[in-house]
Design a protein around this nucleic acid. Structure first.
Ligand SMILES: [Mn+2]
Ligand SMILES: [Mn+2]
Ligand SMILES: [Zn+2]
Ligand SMILES: [Zn+2]
Lengths: 150, 150
DNA sequence: AACACAAATGCGAATTATTCGCAATAATGT
DNA sequence: ACATTATTGCGAATAATTCGCATTTGTGTT
């Protein structure tokens, strides 16, 4: 699958197609799983200031181009969203940090009428142990921190 | 509904029933929605040191007595879990921070075999606009920070 | 092609939530 | 009453994320 037209995507969402944000998008496009801002910066060869990167990620998340994911690691992870990548969720190993995409099985909207007028988004992550970690024994594993968890 | 036997609950989960943790449990029991550590401390009359509170919440979350909830506010929220409160999720207003409980509609487990040996937990929150915020207009609302969001 | 203006960037400093080290206490089982 | 070990308080440390501000640079328009 070839990369989308990021420049157009950025402009369409009300922003500018700066070289930095284009590199950011291309880097995210290659990531198989949500990454931290720090790792993303590293993968960009440090060419983008971290504060700038955070601002970009925040802005892009604001317009739905990027999704922020919480794996309970104490820091945020980001991945491409919207038109670039199909909506999905994750299954994360609490032992080694391995992440697997899972499709969204949520009913389109909550059935019962609630005190809400609109539901605009949702977050959902599954946590468990990958086969490897499950075999190694849950306890020993639980205090391991792998590169994959960063 | 009368409060559970927190002392027993704490001991059964491998901890001690200290006056501090008992107060903590009772305070959580009264909260209608997940609260931050800071707010919880305040509701405890500052009688518990914040570091201690964080350690307690972390320990209790570890044994499943407490659940940590992420509303994308930049800080964690906590609520009673396990036997005390039935498993559920939330619908949070991105305008004013109002929170409504929603039942869990997730299939017990993912059907397809995955590279995982066990799924032990999951997080899921819906985001949207409550009727009040929906009426007031989404944009104006989006930059409001209410006490309910703390 | 030259302009005008808002958006984006870099840098360093500031915030904030959360965690740690460590010595002192106190809960629990014997 | 005793030994063991979890829990606590304090202050200091971290780590992630954000801010202020001056400077640069896209982009739409003359
Ligand atoms: Mn993904
Ligand atoms: Mn709740
Ligand atoms: Zn694993
Ligand atoms: Zn609202």
């Amino acid at each position: 699958m070839r990369p989308p037209d990021f420049a157009r995507m950025l402009r369409r969402s009300g922003g500018r197609a700066t070289p930095g944000r284009l590199r950011l998008m291309r880097a995210l496009w290659k990531e198989p799983a949500p990454v931290t801002a720090a790792r993303l910066q590293k993968s960009l060869g440090r060419t983008l200031n971290l504060a700038t990167l955070y601002r970009a990620l925040d802005a892009l998340a604001g317009v739905g181009v990027v999704r922020r994911v919480d794996f309970r690691h104490g820091h945020a992870h980001y991945e491409l969203a919207a038109p670039a990548r199909a909506h999905h969720h994750h299954l994360a190993c609490t032992g080694c940090g391995a992440v697997e995409d899972v499709s969204c099985t949520l009913r389109p909207r909550l059935k019962r009428a609630s005190a809400f007028s609109a539901i605009t988004d949702h977050a959902m992550e599954y946590f468990g142990l990958c086969k490897a970690c499950g075999a190694r024994g849950a306890e020993r594993v639980s205090r391991t921190r792998t590169e994959a968890m960063e």
